[in-house]
Design a protein around this nucleic acid. Structure first.
Length: 591
RNA sequence: GGUCUGGUAGCUCAGCUGGAUAGAGCAUCAGCCUUCUAAGCUGAGGGCCAUUGGUUCGAAUCCAAUCCAGAUCACCA
């Protein structure tokens, strides 16, 4: 059992024995004691005053006495300052914990809880390469999945590829018009970038045609509809839906180019999926559900045959779920897919990692699922994240202010390379080892930067500052790990039994935070928030570095102290490695 | 206009299920490598927690209003 819970329960017992009243965990708070006071953990007494009709100091004295007298192996001392009962936890408690866990690579991770969760993330369009926004999505989704695993869930990672629709036809048309049979191979370009260029070409041409039409006196809206390239695109979508062979062939070819490019990027950034859904397979889903919904009275039919749901009593609007021509709209597919996911995997919880611009859509999806009484509809969770913006404002593909995913990764690697060469600590590495190291550090910096912020908040990416490798960054944590490993390569923990009675302040501080790892995983899992892990891991590294600067490990005061510190260093390395792994970041042995 | 987010140091962010003098990192300034990796450590300066009211022993945190910024409200996805 973890310390806070332990204190809580002991305090509840003591309060019961002293005052004959029963309290619960929610009746009083336990915080870590602020550094300026003596003690390790603090019970806030104010909330008990009313029920006990005593002054905070009175309660504190009685509780403090009782706790220390009845739990000598847990508490050694207490003091009361202005209504706060500061408890000192016995050093033997920390030492026992350390001895039991210093060698456990699974330290902090929970056992399977029998719950199955699906995490859908990434969900790219196959008409352009991934950009920085996609990276936030990918890193978030992957990390949340890992955190949930560490917290005891059985996790299935999925991806829905938006591989069809008008936007895909746009790049197809442009390729037909301007491609002259070019291929990624012939142009020596990555497939997704190659296709993305035609998407841009489409928009350029469209703009040109609109301009020409406007000169002829046609208004903007009309011009966009009437532009020949747009008409051709719409025709192509119809042909696609009709399964016209040459269109299907082109579609398959161009998508395969994109997939090849995506594969490279996914492999590089470490995204993986247990199951990939394709919109071209799922876009017709949901029609059966529309029928069922009509029968249940959840949906209603308009005179023109379109099908709707009325969500006005839930504070939302009416929403269409099927067009008058009987075709599915976006939300219909999603309901269909939601059900398919459940049928295929019997999931207890379904998490969607999708940007906050779709908050409304996801709210509607969940509501509809609930009204249709789909299984576990209430456990649909939209992990909504904010947009990534540049200091100059939003990223806009049209204005060329998009930060390309492959570019930024490459840039981070270059910085890692320059920095590493400058420091010259790994001159004996092979070329291959160096490449791996640059990727680990560069990608680590990028992932950490994107994950250290609360997902729901929009974030500003400043290319200049973001490639900093000092302070609250991935490389800082990686460096701390490498430092520890450097010691552990030379020195081993040789005895688990040693005579150390007391801990120095920094040793204890380190032990206290290491003890919190499992609690932090749990919190991060419940809140679907990797930034909890990033902040924690940084804090651990910071405390270790202070400890490292203050106390020598290899030249400790006594052999016993050396053993203790080796154990501490070992557990720290484990927690850093494990925590970083939950963020998808590797930690090097040397750097 | 309706709904939903967010506003904390010069910058980027923690803290938000109410608790002690509001914390980090970057940047600025001053120190620390003949000792385990200086991608490090120690210290200094820097704040009307958007504004105004309310709730209470206590509010950055909860409530209300206002101001500012963003998202969304398609027979697009």
């Amino acid at each position: 059992m973890w310390i806070v819970k332990h204190i809580q329960q002991t305090a509840i017992e003591s309060l019961n024995q002293i005052f004959g009243q029963t309290f619960t965990e929610k009746d009083f708070q336990i915080n870590q004691t602020k550094p300026e006071f003596d003690g390790d953990y603090t019970i806030v007494l104010f909330s008990l005053v009313k029920a006990l009709k005593l002054s905070p100091d009175d309660i504190g004295n009685k509780l403090g006495d009782h706790l220390t007298q009845n739990n000598p192996t847990l508490f050694t001392d207490y003091n009361i300052i202005k209504g706060f009962l500061n408890l000192t936890v016995a050093d033997s408690y920390w030492l026992d914990l350390l001895a039991k866990n210093y060698n456990d690579v699974c330290y902090g991770k929970a056992k399977l809880n029998g719950q199955k969760v699906m995490v859908e993330y990434s969900s790219p369009n196959t008409n352009k390469p991934l950009h920085l926004g996609h990276l936030r999505n990918n890193f978030l989704g992957w990390s949340v999945a890992e955190i949930l695993k560490a917290s005891g869930y059985d996790v299935i990672k999925t991806c829905i590829v938006n591989d069809r629709g008008i936007h895909i036809c746009k790049s197809m048309i442009a390729w037909q018009l301007f491609g002259n049979g070019a291929t990624p191979q012939s142009e020596n370009k990555k497939g997704d970038h190659f296709v993305g260029e035609y998407y841009v070409k489409f928009n350029d041409e469209l703009k040109k045609q609109i301009h020409e039409l406007k000169d002829k006196g046609i208004n903007e809206k009309e011009a966009e509809k009437e532009a020949p390239i747009m008409k051709a695109t719409q025709q192509m979508l119809l042909d696609w839906e009709a399964g016209k062979p040459e269109v299907m062939q082109l579609w398959k070819t161009m998508n395969s180019w994109v997939y090849e490019g995506f594969d490279t990027t996914y492999k590089k950034i470490g995204s993986d999926f247990n199951k990939t859904y394709y919109e071209s397979n799922t876009y017709l889903l949901g029609k059966k559900i529309v029928e069922e919904g009509l029968a249940k009275g959840v949906f209603f039919k308009e005179d023109d045959n379109s099908v709707w749901i009325d969500l006005t009593t839930d504070g939302l609007d009416k929403k269409i779920v099927q067009r008058k021509d009987g075709t599915s709209v976006y939300i219909t597919q999603d309901i269909g897919l939601a059900q398919q996911k459940y049928e295929e995997y019997g999931i207890d919880q379904s998490i969607y990692v999708i940007g906050d611009e779709q908050n409304y859509h996801m709210k509607v999806l969940k509501l509809i699922a609930e009204k249709l009484q789909l299984p576990n509809a209430q456990n649909i969770y939209h992990l909504s994240y904010g947009m990534v913006e540049l200091p100059t404002g939003k990223m806009k593909s049209r204005e060329g202010t998009v930060v390309d995913a492959d570019d930024i990764v490459q840039e981070m690697e270059n910085v890692a390379k320059n920095k590493t060469e400058e420091l010259g600590k790994v001159k004996d590495f092979t070329a291959e080892e160096l490449e791996t190291l640059y990727t680990t550090i560069g990608l680590g910096a990028l992932k950490f930067f994107l994950l250290r912020v609360d997902p729901k908040k929009k974030m500003i990416f400043n290319p200049e500052e973001s490639i900093d490798f000092h302070g609250f960054t991935g490389p800082f944590v990686q460096y701390t790990h490498a430092r520890i490993k450097s010691i552990l390569r030379k020195e081993e923990v040789t005895s688990t039994k040693f005579q150390v009675q007391s801990l120095l302040p920094l040793e204890k501080k380190l032990m206290i935070i290491l003890e919190q790892y499992a609690t932090v995983i749990d919190k991060a899992a419940n809140e679907h928030n990797p930034s909890e892990i990033a902040i924690y891991v940084f804090e651990v590294a910071k405390i270790f570095n202070s400890f490292y600067a203050e106390h020598s490990i290899t030249n400790a005061e006594t052999p016993d102290k050396k053993q203790l510190r080796l154990q501490l260093a070992s557990l720290t390395a484990t927690v850093l490695k494990s925590g970083m792994q939950l963020l998808g970041i590797g930690v090097p042995e040397r750097m």
